[in-house]
């Protein structure tokens, strides 16, 4: 599935400019250290972290998109950094656990 399709399916709100690409698998964590160790290229990263350092972390391991859950307000500098790296930064009001149920329903599995 591509990022645009995912946005349509889940009603996500895109916050940054990004290049559409294929999503392969889901990675969930609120920790950069976890992402550095375990996220994979093309993953969808789901987190409640909004601080701008998520973008360098996401970029380092080449995740396709970051979804900020629980309706958190994302600071402008985080959005700007996502723009610069062309990483899709998306948001949803749903909490992480609920969103996973929907993703599972869409057949997006962990890689």
């Amino acid at each position: 599935m591509k990022i645009q399709e995912l946005i349509q399916n889940l009603g996500l709100k895109p916050l940054s400019r990004f290049e559409d690409r294929d999503i392969s698998g889901v990675f969930i964590s609120d920790m950069m250290s976890d992402a550095m160790a375990n996220a994979k290229s093309g993953n969808l990263w789901i987190t409640v972290q909004t601080h701008k350092s998520i973008i360098p972390a996401a970029n380092l391991v080449d995740v396709a998109a970051v979804i900020i859950t629980s309706g958190k307000t994302v600071p402008q500098d985080t959005v700007e950094l996502a723009d610069r790296h062309a990483i899709a930064l998306l948001s949803t009001d749903q909490p992480t656990f609920d969103l996973i149920g929907k993703l599972y329903g869409l057949g997006i599995a962990t890689s």
């Binding site: 609120d30 920790m31 250290s33 601080h51 350092s53």
Partner: peptide, 18 residues
């Protein structure tokens, strides 16, 4: 520069500004 690490994880208060 932006050090990639996890601060404020243990804090009971959200980190407004790092």
């Amino acid at each position: 520069g932006e050090l990639i690490h996890d601060i404020g994880m243990l804090s009971p208060e959200p980190f407004p500004e790092r």
